[in-house]
Design a protein around this nucleic acid. Structure first.
Lengths: 228, 228
DNA sequence: GCCACGCTTCGGTCGCGGCCGAAGCGTCGA
DNA sequence: TCGACGCTTCGGCCGCGACCGAAGCGTGGC
């Protein structure tokens, strides 16, 4: 019976709005300072400090000291997936606020989801690949077809490397603004990395939102037939 | 910024020990009455009633009325996966109580994890299949080999059916008592169902723990080379 | 029709925990 | 050496929510 007091403990930590804000701000894998996180959380620095101490003590965040700054980041990918798992349930919860209309439009268009693309960009890529028979996404699993392997390799992805690493190779990830799956897993991460390398997309300061560059707009249309 | 108030809301619901107990009691997919859940949660019926109302209102539980009983169950598989996701993070949290020694030994030996096997039984099966080259489990994904498909089909699993259903085909699931992965996904569920059908294992009343029958002990040894 | 039973609703108590102001600590730059 | 800065610690306030006793509601059995 005592077995899940730990469960409740962790969930309760995520269950405070300020801490939830902190965790989602870190969801894209970047490390942020205590001050930035206080701003994101909408609380005073001293309050945020307390929250950060708790999250670090529970091993959900990792701390890296640098000069007079303290950088916090998600301690493990599990933490990110846990948050996503809770979000999946949260979007199915009653629409006390209507779904996505209040969300920052930039965030709806394109953002990172831990290490891959989400928003209209992420969903669009997944559907473009699906429409051309390069990808099959089911509810809980996904598969890249032969044609897809050839296509993505041609686009510059190192699929052998992606296969090698110890994580889900190809995983659908339910998009909480679009309510349709986008592409996660090693393939999703590799695709995102390639787009960053090509400077098709760029991170925005203080946000998980992404900017699609002019080159990106052109490239996405030419290569994937995707217009946003 | 408002986007994740929903996240915090759901997490906070899980974050209460009584509600966490309720959710874990339902983790094996069975439906339980309000009274049973009150007992599991360790609170009075009227307190439990309040918790159940909140969980139902937030669409985490589904309610089925039958006579003067009210049966509650997890509303969707997502909820189960969310709980497992939180548990994964929870077992990595500091060992304020040492890991598994206080857990009911029966629960450590064999239990259900949503719809597949966990505990020494679950981990043992996964490792037995792995040792014989029937299964490859990485950190976040898994694969059944050609030989494994043949072997499991011979054991009576309908793999084509498992392939067909819209869920992860083969998924490692970190076991929180053994701290090693066991076999989840459609394959894990099919394997568990087959063992139930053979009456190798039986559910225990009031617990997720499983009893391995004499026939089960024999069969597991003969077919999988597994002794518990 | 009656009571027993399972469950929920209501009302009031109480404790945990989030919050901020003030003060303290370490780091950087001049 | 001094002050500005980033961050944490301390102390006290306050509100939310978990909790249970008592009462109410619907179902089933006799």
């Amino acid at each position: 019976m005592k077995e899940d007091s730990r469960l409740a403990e962790i969930a309760a930590l995520v269950g405070d709005p300020a801490r939830a804000n902190i965790l989602t701000a870190l969801l894209d894998g970047r490390a942020l300072t205590a001050g930035e996180l206080a701003y994101f959380a909408g609380v005073s620095p001293q309050t945020a400090s307390g929250h950060l101490a708790k999250l670090t003590e529970s091993r959900m965040l990792a701390l890296h000291k640098q000069g007079r700054h303290r950088y916090y980041r998600l301690a493990t990918p599990q933490v990110g997936r846990m948050i996503e798992g809770i979000m999946e349930v949260a979007i199915a919860a009653p629409e006390r606020y209507r779904p996505a209309s209040k969300v920052d439009p930039a965030l709806r268009t394109a953002r990172t989801c831990y290490d891959h693309f989400a928003g209209r960009l992420g969903v669009g890529l997944a559907e473009a690949l699906g429409a051309r028979g390069h990808l099959v996404l089911a509810e809980e699993a996904g598969e890249v077809t032969e044609a897809g392997i050839e296509f993505l390799s041609g686009f510059g992805l190192d699929l052998a490397e992606a296969r090698r690493c110890r994580r889900a190779y190809c995983r659908p990830c339910l998009d909480w603004t679009e309510r349709r799956p986008h592409l996660g897993g090693a393939i999703g991460a590799a695709l995102a990395a390639r787009c960053f390398a090509l400077r098709w997309v760029e991170r925005q300061r203080d946000s998980r939102a992404l900017t699609i560059t002019a080159a990106g707009r052109r490239g996405l249309d030419e290569v994937f037939g995707l217009r946003l």
